[in-house]
Design a protein around this nucleic acid. Sequence first.
DNA 1: TTGCTCCTCACGTCACGTGAGGTGGC
DNA 2: TTGCTCCTCACGTCACGTGAGGTGGC
Lengths: 288, 288
Amino acid sequence: MSRARHLSIGRFAGLTGISANTLRRYDEYGLLSPAFTDPLTGYRLYAVEQLDTGVAIRLLRDLDVPLDDLRVLLSGEHPDDVRTLLTHHRERIVERRADLERILARIDAVLHDDHGLLPYELEVVDLAPVWVVSRRLTTTRAALDPAIERSLAQLEDELAAGGVEAAGRELILYANPLQWYQGLDVEVCLPVAETAAAACGARPLDGCRAVRTVYRGPWDDIWQAYAALLAQIARRGLDVCGPVRESYLFDERDTADPTRYLTEIAWPVRPRASVDAPACGASPPQGP
Amino acid sequence: MSRARHLSIGRFAGLTGISANTLRRYDEYGLLSPAFTDPLTGYRLYAVEQLDTGVAIRLLRDLDVPLDDLRVLLSGEHPDDVRTLLTHHRERIVERRADLERILARIDAVLHDDHGLLPYELEVVDLAPVWVVSRRLTTTRAALDPAIERSLAQLEDELAAGGVEAAGRELILYANPLQWYQGLDVEVCLPVAETAAAACGARPLDGCRAVRTVYRGPWDDIWQAYAALLAQIARRGLDVCGPVRESYLFDERDTADPTRYLTEIAWPVRPRASVDAPACGASPPQGP
DNA sequence: TTGCTCCTCACGTCACGTGAGGTGGC
DNA sequence: TTGCTCCTCACGTCACGTGAGGTGGC
């Protein structure tokens, strides 16, 4: 066995630009094993003929092609050639770039829009009483949107039949927003003028003290606003005490860009009665 | 100790969107520990007041801000606010995007330029003899470029003094290209017409059989071409037998884009004399 | 009591780098 | 003989997910 045409791991590393350590792992991994391994010393000896394979691996790794892909390619078992592999890999990289673009857009939104990380500025307000026609339903989160659509359409039909016009956009009450995974108790409301209340069978929503904020962004992420609100309410020594009201200041009727949606959240609160008393409707371990 | 305002890890996870597992690690890591841990059962209980911190962590992790940064931010020890942190983080993301752009550009170069992964098409050629004025030097890789510049300038001065014009671009001979880490033995040559050879003290470069390829790309990566060439030479049953010649078909004099450089590499070869005989100049273990 | 939640501990992911501690070859 | 190279084994990186095996609380 002549070693004249064999390269030690260090030389092979120097020529291919792959570190000796990494070459050992490629050997173990079955990706690129030396032409000869001394059974006594364990020394790895690479053939000069393996250099171009090594260079190719190095080039593809520089492009961040996964080792698994390289093994498939080098095994020759699949008919995929480098071109096919790189085409697939290109898509992966394009996706990663898109991920970064999304992150950048969100960072810039925080930096430029000049609201803090949690863009929920709370204020305590007194909600005025309001007359509404409403429809209450129980549904799941997945079925929520069409259920609301249907209820709204029905309410609008009823108002039209009675010759009454809605006094504003719809208002949606959630009795248990934090237990959405157990099903949602929803009341869809359309406000009407008090003078028209009798004509359409409207009921009053009582006025009450509430904590109010405006959430900006797509509805999928609105749970974050709820969790943050809940923390702030607790910090202020308040307890939530009634169904939360969502109203839609700016939504798909106003923009195609969900990140610009504005949703008002108003949560009825009262001073915390006692440290040890369970809070009504807010304390998750309590109710059904 | 009332637990009415405490949340189990599962509820806290559901409200913040952080998995229970991850919350346990954040506890261990000191990033976000529960307000209360039952010493008997080890159960973690989070305060409602911790929800907004949880949401903030979740938001920043969605932006891929490292845990270490979050710990610094939440510790309040440093005056950095979220804005500063995000500004730094933005730079990191922009860098990552630039990395991906570079990878995409290289993938596209391979895909569109229609050469294979190793863009080295070998051919065996017979190099014609050529007359050159030359200057031989020993240097390191770091000092190579200015050393070549100086030698070339001197050679050009000499030719000008003798009233002779160069017959083409320079040619550079490397006696030991694969041992560059041990120092380079370089001969810088300018070709001249045979008729002018005597007037300027030119010497002949003998003709010989050689393996020739054209490397495309920046010089920093040219070692890859050498390694791949060496593999192909061995596969064809040849041995290298003399200093390799580089000539610069397309370089900084022609383009500002190093990825478009074209470098011709011609390596004198002979048929392998014997499997066990050491090859001249190519077999790395053989000495300086 | 059943089923759900919670606990800890360990291992896998991905592709390496960095050492410790010891040995072979000129 | 000295200094260099090579060996194996173990651990660290990063931020998790996934399971095993067992227990607490309504």
